[in-house]
Amino acid sequence: MLDVNTPLSKDSRNFLENLRLYLIANGKNTDEIEEIVEELGVHLLEAEGNDKSVEHIVGSSPKEYMEQISAEMPVDVKGSLKYLVMILFGAASYLVMDKALNGGIEFSFLELIGYPLAGLLSIVVYLISFRYLASHTLSMVRQSVLLFTLGIISIALFASVIILSGIYGTPFVKLENTGNVVAVIAAISIFIFLSIWSKTWIPIIIPLLLFGPSLLMDNTDYQESVKLVLSSLITMLGILLYCGITLKKSKSV
């Protein structure tokens, strides 16, 4: 991977980051992506040493240039499917954990169909938007509006599954005690597997921060409302702390 601390100009770094995002959103092979990003980085570095601008390298339209590169790289179907399956499995494990800790695992038929569908739709919407974001120069405001809308869309998709299932759904799968324990162990194993596979702590830390505090609070004698506020506070602070530590680490490398 290209060193983030190479003395490349901001324009060049932006272009390389956008190219990487564009190619990922187009389902290209990650090794091949890193290869071309690195090669272009070397070129840009040398070009900047000779006072050439990014435009001199990529032409007047970065979008067209990204398309040209993308067109020469085959879509990595197997690799993309792997990511898709991992994301869906990860999301399913969150749901299972959440249900198991809040009164037991119970899914209606609508939920069983609806959640994967909402997940897939969200991924498609995100990929299309990332392609757009990477190949267009947008102001900070527009970028934030787009990302915010994206968040709302996926939340709305999942919320409608929850609401519809509340109205029309009848329990289709309902697990008893042993079933719940087995499902939770499976979910935890998936988190650990995802963490090893992605070589990051995120798949373990996020569920720990989301579910840990309320579990802890359940063992205290505080009032319900106090429990709720405290556990959400710990979750939020934990996530902020984790982001801070990661940011500091990536800067000091």
């Binding site: 090669e39 272009l40 070129h43 070009a47 435009e55 390298i57 240039y65």
Partner: peptide, 24 residues
């Protein structure tokens, strides 16, 4: 390597070409 290739093309008269064209 890439940068050298682009420079050579440029010296042979392909100045109007943006250097990155060679990578695709």
């Amino acid at each position: 390597y890439g940068y050298e290739l682009a420079e050579k093309l440029n010296r042979y008269g392909f100045e109007s070409l943006s250097e990155g064209t060679i990578y695709p």
